[in-house]
């Protein structure tokens, strides 16, 4: 390499044997000393002021962030709680509505049953009374038929007894008697 400076400038030539200024041992002691001093001063000052300050900032930030995170977590939990409450309420009201519906249905069914029973009872009663009336009428008719039959028997017997009849006369008499009875029966029935 090129080192013209040393040759020409006496000041530098005196300080070393040439070559790189870095190899000039006469400067070593002072540079060694000041390197140590300035580096150790830097180390001390960094350690004393800068590192705690940055750690403080980083810690504070971390705390803020974790605080925010836990806040968010809490809020989320709260929201979930609210949602759960709401859903429970919803479920409750649905149940209530169902209950009400079931009650109404039951009542309606009861009412219907009741009405049906009453109707049935009424019908039964009507049927009963009608049956009774029919029965009565029947009995009355039978009674009357009995009376008519007796009358017929009496008349027939009277006629039989009063004269002997021919076959044609007998037939005529029976027909007469029947028609008489019929008219009596229809009269009685009416």
């Amino acid at each position: 390499m090129i080192s013209v400076a040393h040759a020409s400038e006496g000041a530098h030539a005196a300080s070393g044997g040439g070559g790189l200024p870095q190899f000039d041992a006469s400067t070593f002691s002072s540079q060694f000393f000041w390197t140590l001093v300035s580096f150790l001063a830097l180390l001390f000052l960094l350690n004393k002021y800068v590192i705690p300050a940055i750690n403080r900032v980083l810690d504070a930030r971390e705390k803020t962030i974790s605080g925010d995170l836990s806040n968010a977590e809490n809020m989320k939990k709260e929201a979930q709680q609210v949602l759960a409450d709401y859903q429970a309420k919803l479920r409750d009201s649905a149940k209530k509505a169902e209950q009400t519906l079931a009650d109404a249905q039951k009542e309606a069914a009861q009412n219907r049953e009741q009405a049906l029973k009453e109707l049935n009872a009424e019908l039964q009663k009507k049927q009963d009374s009608a049956t009774e009336a029919i029965e009565q009428a029947k009995r009355k008719a039978i009674e009357e038929v009995k009376v008519v039959a007796a009358d017929l028997a009496i008349i027939t017997t009277q006629k039989l007894i009063s004269k002997s009849v021919t076959k044609t006369e007998a037939n005529k008499m029976v027909t007469e008697a029947i028609s008489e009875m019929e008219s009596a029966g229809s009269k009685a029935l009416n």
Binding site: S26, T27, S29, S30, Q31, F33, W34, T35, S38, F39, A41, L42, L45, L46, V50
Partner: peptide, 19 residues
């Protein structure tokens, strides 16, 4: 010899600049 040289001066300037 612990003279303050341009080398040590700039070392100190560096330290001051860092701080």
């Amino acid at each position: 010899d612990i003279s303050i040289t341009n080398s040590s001066l700039w070392m100190m300037i560096s330290v001051a600049a860092i701080l």
